[in-house]
Design a protein around this nucleic acid. Structure first.
Lengths: 259, 259
DNA sequence: GAGTGGTCTAGACCACGGA
DNA sequence: CCGTGGTCTAGACCACTCA
């Protein structure tokens, strides 16, 4: 059985923190390994002799720290941490595309985790103002918008939305769910836009509630937002990709000359 | 007066989310500017006609996003944000050093904020294992360790610790508080190590309590950690710099070829 | 249907901050 | 002192999951 301890009224920490500390210790010591189910709220209420809100506040603290994930109707589970993915700036190397690998898959191979993609949706819409500006398109121009979610070993680690000018994407596999070997970039190059360079803008913040749901993270887990613009050899922007990554699942690596 | 809206029972979002959305909107549109006090819990309860827990859940959502900070006995306030600093990967360009500007100062000039540096300390110590490895030094080798804190318009935005092999730094201005025109990198180049390239590793996480104090941020505000290694033209590592940045004060920009 | 977590109500007492 | 947020109680109904 699990040693949950009990509440010490002399302790200067409030009960909910003591409960959180007990559970946190069970997790950090491995008594509650990743994927394991925590005692249910009802069990915790009975064990500690407190009201439901008190137990929920403790659980919420752990959720905020990203230690546990609640699944409605099932229980609260110790979060399985995704393997860290190192993203080097050569991950879009043409050599990978030539071998028919999209960036995420090529990188997964190096990191040694099982990659996955789901929640793919493809629509054609008017470009949001900021996207139109980055793509140097007139206001209201139409773009193909590709959303998807990436998984590592079954755990969500990133959501991504790509915007490609309709003039480039129309009639290609870019508008179908499966973009074919080498991914979007391979299709863009087939349209006569050989890729020349990328720019990336990186920052970090707390996730919105929607992002928390999509990435299955607690309120206390920050995300890295990375916006990448791909340019062809004529320095024409051909794609903007906005990604939101679970911070602890990524290390971004860049290499640049001193000039 | 503030337009708080009201709860729509037909809306499929639960009331606490609707309240959070209303407040979030007031903040993002500037109706509630940074530093401003939100309506008190009691006022929100009266306005929306809900129980206190419902209001608190809405506020907690905003706290989790780092949008507001609660101060016991005073109220809930919109978090004030320092000016955003854009860090382009050419910020270490030799041209800046030639003009006698260190990277932080050169970049401040572009961003238009008043830069500051304080809490400077310089010591010589045994290199931590990870640093020694990055600098390709034998275990236990001695390095000059320079710590400092950077400010933008008087607000702390970053702490940084540089490690330079003693063999390079000894006897130069690198070991004094004021490193002279062009900063550390100018001194390293004067020692015959012309800089060739940099690598940077970027990730994000929640701050430790010490970092919260140094950067004067509340819990709920993530930090970006950036570790940079500088290499000379012989590809010898000459400096490792570990920085911790307040996430919302920075946008990192990188530009790299498609290859 | 039983068990789970999600949301909500209507109270209560406490600790902190400022007038 | 009064208004603020912090913590807690003891219930309620709902939506989801799984057998």
């Amino acid at each position: 059985m699990l040693d949950l301890g009990s509440i010490d009224r002399a302790d200067d920490r409030p009960p909910y923190r003591q409960i959180a500390a007990s559970l946190r210790r069970l997790i950090s010591t491995g008594r509650l390994p990743p994927g394991e189910k925590l005692p249910s709220e009802a069990e915790l209420i009975a064990h500690y002799g407190v009201a439901r809100m008190t137990v929920r506040q403790a659980l919420q603290e752990l959720r905020g720290e990203g230690l546990v994930v609640a699944e409605h109707g099932k229980g609260v589970f110790v979060r399985s941490t995704p393997p860290v993915r190192r993203l080097a700036s050569d991950r879009f190397a043409r050599a990978h595309r030539k071998q028919g690998k999209a960036a995420f898959l090529a990188e997964a191979e190096v990191s040694g985790h099982k990659p996955g993609v789901d929640q793919i949706s493809v629509t054609t819409e008017q470009a949001p103002a900021e996207i139109a500006e980055r793509l140097r398109l007139p206001e209201g121009a139409r773009v193909v918008m590709r959303s998807r979610r990436y998984l590592a070993n079954g755990t969500p680690v990133e959501t991504a939305v790509s915007y490609i000018p309709e003039s480039i994407a129309a009639g290609t596999a870019i508008v179908s769910t499966d973009t074919g070997p080498g991914g979007i970039y391979a299709r863009i190059e087939e349209q006569g836009h050989q890729l020349g360079r990328f720019t990336e803008q990186v920052t970090a913040r707390m996730p919105t509630p929607e992002e928390r749901r999509a990435l299955q993270i607690g309120a206390g887990v920050p995300v890295i937002t990375l916006t990448r613009t791909a340019f062809d050899l004529d320095d024409l922007p051909v794609e903007v990709c906005e990604t939101v990554k679970v911070s602890h699942a990524f290390v971004l690596e860049y290499d640049f000359p001193a000039r």
